[in-house]
């Protein structure tokens, strides 16, 4: 009885380590395709930027307006009790630029673009499209996976920046436009408090890391999927769940490194 549990744990651990190894080798293989992609087939990258980036824009903007407005409302109401409503700008700005922008954008990205990537690549595997490409002497890792990964890495930082900027305007709209806070204090306090290097550059670094990890998990899950309908659906779920967990774990790690120094 106990022996079985121990054996199960061992098997799980070995499988996990093997998957990690496969994932890392896969990542290196994909990266090696980047130069050829950029210099010889930029068209592939552009069409993926459209699918991965542009098509995620709507959900990013809608969510960030919402998040910004809620932040504006809640923080204003709390701060006004202390007569500190002039701190609304920095409070909203810092939380968006440092945390909510990169993290929320990455989570939404994992749900919107990541799942689509996994499903697409998994389906291509299940319908032998990847094998077919391989037999046509075209490396699917370079032709299919590389443009998608690079598009994800480029798109997420841009989406996160849009999230933060739009969110701040959302908070401004509620805190200043509707609740009557002071516009000058909102902007000047924010400018005084948000440091472009410590806050904005670090926020960008975060979202670049998230972009790499989320897209990597998504394309790997698709490429590694069991080539059946069930396998693809499982892989898609795993891509979103693992991607989101990785974002949260990395966020904690990166925040601890960046903002405690």
């Amino acid at each position: 009885m106990l022996r079985q549990q121990v054996q199960g744990l061992g098997r799980w651990f070995i499988n996990t380590v093997q998957r990690l190894g496969r994932g890392n080798l896969f990542f290196l293989r994909v990266i090696r395709g980047f130069p050829a992609l950029i210099f010889r087939q930029p068209g592939l990258l552009i069409s993926q930027l459209h699918i991965v980036g542009v098509l995620s824009l709507l959900i990013i903007v809608v969510s960030s307006v919402n998040v910004g407005m809620v932040l504006g409302l809640q923080m204003y109401n709390t701060l006004v009790d202390f007569g500190a409503e002039s701190s609304l700008g920095p409070a909203v700005g810092l939380s968006l630029v440092r945390e909510l922008g990169p993290v929320m954008a990455a989570l939404l990205f994992a749900g919107r673009a990541g799942s689509a990537l996994t499903a697409e690549i998994g389906l291509m595997k299940a319908t032998e499209q990847l094998d077919g490409m391989e037999m046509m002497a075209v490396d699917p890792v370079r032709r299919i996976v590389a443009p998608r990964l690079l598009a994800g890495i480029i798109s997420l930082p841009l989406l996160a920046a849009i999230f933060s900027a739009v969110g701040i305007f959302g908070a401004y709209f509620v805190g200043v436009g509707m609740l009557g806070g002071d516009a000058g204090a909102f902007w000047s306090q924010m400018q005084a408090k948000i440091d472009w290097h410590d806050d904005i550059i670090n926020g960008i670094i975060k979202s670049v890391v998230f972009g790499i990890v989320v897209t990597w998990i998504a394309v790997f899950e698709g490429y590694d999927a069991v080539p059946t309908a069930e396998g693809v659906s499982r892989a898609t779920t795993r891509a979103v769940v693992n991607g989101s967990l990785a974002i949260l774990a990395l966020d904690f790690l990166l925040t601890a490194i960046m903002f405690n120094g």
């Binding site: 630029v97 841009l158 920046a161 900027a165 739009v166 400018q191």
Partner: peptide, 13 residues
């Protein structure tokens, strides 16, 4: 995306 970065950097920091 770049405009957002620009606004973040110039107007908000």
């Amino acid at each position: 995306g770049l405009a957002s970065l620009f606004v973040l950097a110039l107007k908000m920091s």
